[in-house]
Design a protein around this nucleic acid. Structure first.
Length: 694
DNA sequence: CTAGGGTTAG
């Protein structure tokens, strides 16, 4: 045995000496083998059950010494085992993430019933193991045993029982246990409140809390964490703030879990600034606090802030976990930050973070939203467990990336795999049909979703159908479809119809569509532009001008177009007529060069979308300064030759940029992937994956 | 030897 530790430092066993052995043991488990040896020598180990228990407990307290604790327990030398010894080891197994081993010990106790009968500690621990494993049937068995042995009056057993039922998704059973309990203190209340929280019944959490106040049960910090979390989920800022006030008054703000829950609540109620102030005020921030703040930014659509905070987190040397990475990836997906997201993916692999279904789905979605559909497929295939979210993410990704046929094949595979589609899955399926102009197939899926899956179509599904019909040129039928649909059409529906009118030059229905849009939501400049273009393409110049004037009279501002492009992990933002970039001159020069070269290849500027009162030459300059062209020029300047240029923009691609980009892809022999508000455009060799319909 | 609590995807 190693003797690196001077024996004088060892506690003296066997005598009622001044040094109580337990505190130093916990502080430094490396003392244990020496102590073990000393106990064997003195005969204390086999003679005193209490000493053995203390040694076992000390070893079990440290996860790295768990095998050592097991050998103490199994191999001896030791006194006869007692129930507390079993309990200590069970708890150690559970703590180390081996609930199944804890249950094996429990079963062993049942067999050796005479020597070591299971007690209330055993039962509580066994129930917790069942919670961890979602083993409802075993849990019921433990409950039956506990009833038989008269252990269910114990409040620890009861709360573990509630917890077990909640973890297995049976809140009703949890509630029965709660209601049947003789007396329920704060712990029992907390257990049932947490049960509702875990199962997503947030209203009931709030109701139960109000019940507590009525009955006069004192709540504690644990209660408040659940309540505040629920407030965030249902957006009940009023109760959330009441709790926040209480936390301030009672000086509970030093509890980091409570503060994290409050942060989350503020972020989800749209008060991201308040969340950030709480975050900044925390004396130490663990991985959950960082993750909560990052996800707060992501959910508040402040994705750049989310990524910024993520790099601060790394500077603070807090290791991210799988949950952190989900939010980071979803921020990358929104921004189209391919490099950053790829780095996250490699980090996940390097650190062997567990590829949970949620994390895997976030990866699939991220790659799909960056237009890298093959990488999305690879991530999808590498996942050990996929659920309907995972399949849906890939189906939607395929559909938006112009691979409708494959999306539909995936849908078949999904059903073969026995995964139930959801309402969102059908949005992906209908988008796929629409993209590939599969009208009949789209109708079939639309009818089948209610009939075969009991999913009532929402307004989004109707929107997909309008898009599908309109795209296929069935504009009248699309209009009739809207007139007869059982729910109130919204502006998105009418906008889909308007788009189809623009492509298929239908003045009459186009007029009606804009009228409807204006009556529903008047603040979208693109709608007026579309109708104006419809008039223009039909030669009705006066009407075209009138629509522009109406737009101006109504004070409709054009949403500034904005394009994002990532370079070495930094996301650059371009606006039309951008004047804020350090390399402005070079960029505009590059744009001129670009335009010059594609004109040779047959490019004719399409200035239909520009205000009519401007001079023709000015119009040309104006479209050449669209944010997309600036970003593409920047990409051509900065990226390696041959590297795909990827950008994402906030609006739909305009007709001029679309035809220009097609030619740029040909003239410069570059793949260019543009993600617009709705879909992806993969430009290559002068063509686009959207087949010029978007 | 005993509980219960915070962050995550389509």
């Amino acid at each position: 045995m190693a003797t690196a530790v001077p024996t004088a430092a060892l506690p003296t066993p066997g005598r009622a000496g001044p040094a109580p052995p337990r505190a130093p043991l916990r502080a430094d488990p490396s003392y244990l083998p020496q102590l073990h040896a000393a106990l064997i020598k003195s005969g204390e180990l086999t003679g005193s059950a209490k000493s053995f228990h203390s040694l076992l407990e000390a070893a079990a307290a440290s996860p790295t010494l768990l095998p050592y604790a097991v050998s103490l327990f199994r191999l001896g030398p030791r006194p006869p085992l007692s129930t507390p010894c079993y309990n200590v080891l069970m708890r150690a197994f559970l703590h180390a993430g081996h609930p199944e081993d804890a249950l094996h010990l429990f079963i062993e106790m049942l067999h050796a019933a005479s020597a070591c009968p299971a007690d209330q500690h055993t039962a509580a621990c066994a129930l917790k193991s069942c919670s961890r494993m979602c083993a409802l049937d075993v849990g019921r068995g433990v409950q039956a045993y506990a009833v038989k042995r008269g252990l269910v009056a114990d409040r620890f057993v009861l709360s573990s029982l509630i917890h077990m039922y909640a973890s297995c998704g049976d809140v009703a059973a949890a509630r029965l246990v709660f209601d049947a309990a003789e007396e329920s203190g704060v712990v029992m209340w907390n257990a049932i409140v947490a049960a509702y929280l875990k199962n997503g019944d947030w209203m009931e959490v709030v109701e139960m809390f109000k019940g507590m106040l009525e009955v006069g049960v004192a709540f504690d910090e644990v209660t408040l964490v659940s309540v505040v979390t629920a407030c965030g989920r249902i957006g009940d800022a009023k109760l959330g703030k009441w709790v926040a006030g209480h936390v301030d008054e009672e000086g509970l703000a030093r509890n980091p879990k409570l503060v994290t829950a409050l942060m989350d609540m503020y972020a989800k109620c749209g008060e991201i600034g308040k969340a950030r102030r709480l975050f900044d005020g925390m004396q130490s921030r663990d991985v959950v606090a960082w993750s909560a703040m990052i996800s707060g930014y992501t959910q508040a659509d402040q994705c750049r802030e989310a990524l910024g905070l993520f790099s601060e987190m790394q500077l603070a040397r807090v290791e991210p976990n799988d949950v952190t990475m989900v939010s980071v990836l979803s921020a990358c997906a929104v921004l189209g930050a391919l490099e950053t997201g790829k780095w996250v993916h490699s980090y996940v692999r390097r650190k062997r973070l567990s590829l949970t279904t949620i994390l895997g789905t976030a990866l699939v979605d991220f790659y799909a939203k960056c237009g890298c559909i093959d990488d999305a497929v690879e991530a999808f295939e590498s996942m050990p467990v996929k659920n309907s979210w995972t399949w849906t993410a890939l189906i939607k990704g395929m559909a938006t990336n112009g691979r409708g046929r494959e999306a539909l094949e995936l849908f078949s595979s999904m059903r073969e795999a026995g995964i139930e589609p959801t309402d969102v899955t059908f949005i992906g399926v209908l988008m796929a049909c629409s993209h590939s102009c599969l009208v009949e197939e789209g109708r079939r899926h639309f009818d089948s979703m209610a009939r075969d899956y009991g999913i009532k179509p929402r307004v989004e599904h109707y929107g997909c159908m309008v898009d599908l019909l309109g795209r296929a040129g069935l504009v009248d039928e699309a209009y009739q479809f809207i007139r007869t649909m059982p729910i109130e059409p919204n502006a998105v529906i009418w906008r889909a119809l308007l788009s189809s009118c623009a492509v298929h030059r239908n003045v009459g229905i186009g007029e009606e569509a804009l009228k409807q849009i204006i009556s529903l939501n008047p603040s979208h400049s693109g709608d007026y532009v579309l109708l104006s273009n419809i008039y223009a393409s039909a030669g009705q110049w006066k009407d075209a001008a009138m629509v522009r004037k109406e737009m101006k009279d109504r004070g409709i501002e054009k949403t500034p177009g904005c394009s994002l492009i990532e370079l070495d992990g930094v996301v650059f933002e371009f606006f039309a007529e951008d004047s804020d970039h350090p390399e402005l001159r070079e960029i505009y020069q590059k744009v001129e060069e670009m335009i010059g070269r594609i004109k040779v290849a047959g490019y004719v500027p399409n200035t239909a979308d520009v205000r009519l009162e401007v001079e023709e030459r000015e119009k040309e300059v104006s479209v050449s300064h669209h944010s997309e062209k600036l970003a593409i020029a920047f990409g051509l300047m900065k990226l390696d030759p041959g590297a795909t240029i990827r950008l994402s923009k906030n609006l739909r691609v305009c007709a001029d940029c679309h035809s220009a980009t097609k030619l740029i892809s040909k003239v410069y022999d570059r793949e260019i992937v543009v993600r617009d508000r709705n879909i992806f455009h993969h430009f290559k060799d002068g063509t686009c994956s959207c087949n010029d319909y978007w």
